[in-house]
């Protein structure tokens, strides 16, 4: 198993560094450029949600991004200790309905689920939140 972690400050200007870190790991693991792009976008969306919602743009906070790559499974864990949220409230929106009303937020969660094979959450209120984004390498 290969595991790598970076820690970033909760600032949107760090998103490009996160995308580069994840892209490099996904490329090395053997994903196509198309899949590398999907993984980087999903991780960007997860980190953007943390910066905006869990930490409410507090730049003194930290986010840990860990990549586990083994046995055809590529997993990225995005961990913060900001405001907890209830994953049960995050439902799959009806995109046609959504677009018709020009709603702006919540697109990131939909994208994460569309781009990855699995999205899991582990929430320990007051302690930490973790989003796990998983993609399988096709044989």
């Amino acid at each position: 198993m290969k595991t790598e972690t970076i820690h970033i400050e909760s600032r949107t200007e760090r998103l490009s560094a996160v995308r580069e870190f994840v892209s490099e790991a996904a490329r090395t693991f053997g994903f196509s450029e198309e899949d590398v792009g999907k993984i980087a976008l999903a991780v960007d969306e997860a980190c953007t949600n943390v910066i905006k919602h869990a930490y409410r743009f507090d730049p003194t906070k930290k986010i840990a991004i860990t990549v586990h790559a083994a046995n055809g499974t590529f997993e990225i864990r995005i961990r913060d200790n900001g405001n907890a949220f209830d994953p049960g409230r995050i439902h799959q929106p009806d995109m046609k309905e959504y677009m018709t009303h020009f709603r702006r937020g919540g697109l990131g969660v939909y994208l994460m689920r569309s781009l990855m094979d699995k999205v899991e959450y582990e929430i320990k209120p007051g302690k930490m939140n973790e989003v796990r984004l998983i993609k399988f390498l096709a044989n």
Binding site: L15, R19, G37, E45, T48, M99, F102, R104, L107, L111
Partner: peptide, 16 residues
């Protein structure tokens, strides 16, 4: 080269 939902959201904000 790249767009995330934050960019798409800007188009949503103004189109109406």
């Amino acid at each position: 080269s790249y767009i995330s939902s934050a960019g798409l959201g800007v188009f949503m904000a103004f189109i109406e």
